[in-house]
Design a protein around this nucleic acid. Sequence first.
DNA 1: GAATATTTTTAGACTTATCTAAAAATATTT
DNA 2: AAATATTTTTAGATAAGTCTAAAAATATTC
Lengths: 217, 217
Amino acid sequence: MVTLSEENYLKAIYHLGKQGSVAVSTNAIAEKIESKASSVTDMIKKLAEKDLANYVKYQGVTLTESGRLAAALVVRKHRLWEVFLVEKLNFTWDEVHDVAEQLEHIKSLKLVNELDALLGFPTHDPHGDPIPDKEGNYTLIKSVNILEVEPGNEGVLAQVKDSSDVFLRYLDKNNLALGDKIKVLDFEPFDNSLTIETSSQKMIISNDVAKNLYISL
Amino acid sequence: MVTLSEENYLKAIYHLGKQGSVAVSTNAIAEKIESKASSVTDMIKKLAEKDLANYVKYQGVTLTESGRLAAALVVRKHRLWEVFLVEKLNFTWDEVHDVAEQLEHIKSLKLVNELDALLGFPTHDPHGDPIPDKEGNYTLIKSVNILEVEPGNEGVLAQVKDSSDVFLRYLDKNNLALGDKIKVLDFEPFDNSLTIETSSQKMIISNDVAKNLYISL
DNA sequence: GAATATTTTTAGACTTATCTAAAAATATTT
DNA sequence: AAATATTTTTAGATAAGTCTAAAAATATTC
């Protein structure tokens, strides 16, 4: 049995270490989970004991195959619930995170898979993040950060990296949504801002905003 | 903040004490929650401290108004999730309990109320139990145990008291479902069994089964 | 490459929720 | 109503998960 706390650590390692392949440091996990390094060390030992993580003192941690699968299943549940909340329960994309954070720990294989079916087997959540399948696999969308696009080129907004309320509400307020066609017009070296054009408007976005927008060409 | 454990105790007191009005004994709670009397005493003190329960040493416990409301909200969530699982996710009525037991602790007012709307504001769960509204109120269906019905009379199966897998599967196997019209034909004093007739069959049910069937006339 | 800074681990303490065993209060029996 | 039985509470222990402070290991700087 994997506890709620263990699941949260597995998820943190999974996200920080690119699905668990890259070694993750104690401090990085502590920061992500908002706990202390000493707590992380304790938990990592427990995960290693359960064969969910590979741990060498002072060398950081990676996930084992079963750890990676357990983490992917939590992420799968999180993202499916996010889709459910937006599509079926009228949540906005900035409201879903906290609730999905609770729902991701519900244990029932039937529940996840039926939910998946109810939603029509979605491949991405409301923020454009991919939803792992039952085996923990997903196909990456080949999207690039909008700052790497040469002025003159265009693409479709495919993913947003920051999922905080403020950022998502900024996008709503400025009429930017996943799936929108965006053309990059100009990069301003003075403040690293970007001028972009959508079907409805021409606008300037700050570097802080641009860093979080990913488009597929 | 009410913890998961506290919610389970509130629910037990709510159910054992007829929505919290009747004093409930320590041992009764321990049995319901499958814990020990000493653990119950500890928890009751905590609930009293938080003004969720009224507690006098050796005299049992009742719920305060805020305790009653908190308990009713947990029950509301439990029963709404059960309806969701059966109506939207193809669960059978004997599969819902364990999952609903987890889902009932998810904290989000918006979630409960949107779920309620998605399901069309149901008044009863798949076992015929009433679903409390936002204020914790519900209207009782006036149903009677089938053993109290005089032979010759008939009614509609409105509620089943036992919600264990085995019992619910027994009903499925024998084609008995909520809403079925049932006529009581004969009571057998030797083993207290009952002969009943539905639209599809005539059958004998044991006293153990009859005790759990409630019909509205 | 020695000195300093940072990161990580260890040791010990705290909280929540649980338990067992013993003591205290209440209920039941004769 | 005294003796016995049952219920409830208290006292002290345990496990999970967290913390602070100090020690140990690794990284960085001069």
